[in-house]
Design a protein around this nucleic acid. Structure first.
Length: 317
DNA sequence: CACTCGTGGGG
DNA sequence: TCCCCAAGAGT
């Protein structure tokens, strides 16, 4: 085991992504923020577009908690999974300093078991493993697991973790998963875990991937226009919560001008929208904005596409 | 335990 | 064009 840990550590010294900014800070808030941003999100996106602007706008947990949720959502715009922003803000209102205890961390909204362990290992150097996508795939291959339970995975993770250097070990595991133990075409000959890996003969078998069908939804979007201003409303459900958007209907509207079609792919369904423009003679909706004001609102990708279609239509008039 | 919840990149 | 997949959490 000690030799294995040396292999992993040595690999990390030579091939790890050590320059990532959240690996070079002792500030728990920055590490926590990176963990939340990186949930189901690629490193490149967080690093190039969101991490630094967010910190500049909200330098401390305290200032984040004292900000409006709408301002937080605006900084999160385009990153997706907007409940992360809501929970991040909620947590910032609850504490001005992050606890180091895993049991306390996990009580905070938006911090699950993995993020709690990641904060513990990366911000407070506790000897605990993490359990995200890369680690899962590596463990499945090492121990030839096709459909393991979460509990099972954690048991293997605790068995393997380097308690003498949990920071480098956990970072290394993620880098190995991201660059060596790939979902397709695993580079086993370059892997520091190759000697103990039971699945290296056919890594593609582990873990077993489940396919699911993606249904398609058809919707009709109506842009209400009054006095050169447009109506948008703020979503309240859990889908795109807090973001502003145009009205959506299941039935095509009457007396509205058809502008065109917009489609968008989500994880669990595809959306096809027919977009209409409706000129109102008197204000019927609550909120109306001009284009400059809309730019100040947090809106989702579909509504961005719809807006672009509208602007294109206006240009041709 | 299965499903929801966004978006961008890569094959 | 389509499908897979990313530093997962909440229900």
């Amino acid at each position: 085991m000690k030799k294995l840990h040396r292999n992993i550590h040595n690999w990390y010294q030579h091939h790890g992504r050590q320059t990532l900014p959240w690996r070079n800070t002792d500030e728990p808030y920055y590490i926590y923020l990176s963990e939340v941003m990186l949930q189901q999100t690629q490193v490149k996106t967080v690093y190039e577009r969101y991490y630094f602007p967010f910190i500049e706008r909200f330098p401390t947990l305290k200032e984040l908690g004292e900000s409006k949720l709408d301002d937080v959502l605006k900084m999160w715009e385009g990153l997706g999974y907007y409940n992360r922003a809501k929970n991040l803000h909620k947590t910032a209102t609850l504490v001005h300093e992050l606890p180091s205890d895993i049991e306390e961390l996990i009580k905070l909204p938006g911090i699950g078991k993995n993020t709690a362990h990641a904060i513990a290992a990366f911000a407070f150097h506790q000897p605990v493993p993490i359990m995200e996508a890369n680690v899962k795939r590596i463990l499945c291959r090492i121990y030839k697991l096709k459909t393991p339970t979460e509990k099972e995975l954690w048991e293997y993770a605790y068995r393997l973790v380097d308690r003498d250097n949990p920071f480098d070990y956990n970072q290394a595991m993620m880098d190995i998963g991201a660059t060596i133990c790939l979902p397709k075409n695993a580079q086993c000959n370059l892997c520091p875990l190759e000697s103990i890996c039971q699945g290296k003969v056919d890594p593609g078998l582990y873990p077993m991937k489940k396919k699911r069908l993606v249904p398609t939804r058809e919707e009709h979007i109506v842009i209400h226009s009054y006095n050169d201003r447009l109506s948008l409303s703020q979503r309240s459900g859990k889908f795109l919560h807090g973001l502003w958007g145009f009205e959506s209907m299941e039935v095509p509207p009457c007396a509205a001008e058809y502008l065109g079609e917009v489609s968008h792919a989500y994880t669990h369904f595809k959306l096809n929208c027919k977009v209409y423009l409706y000129y109102e003679s008197s204000p019927e909706q609550i909120h109306y904005f001009n284009l400059d004001e809309i730019r100040e609102l947090a809106i989702s990708k579909v509504d961005e596409k719809i807006l672009k279609l509208l602007e294109k239509t206006i240009e041709t008039l």
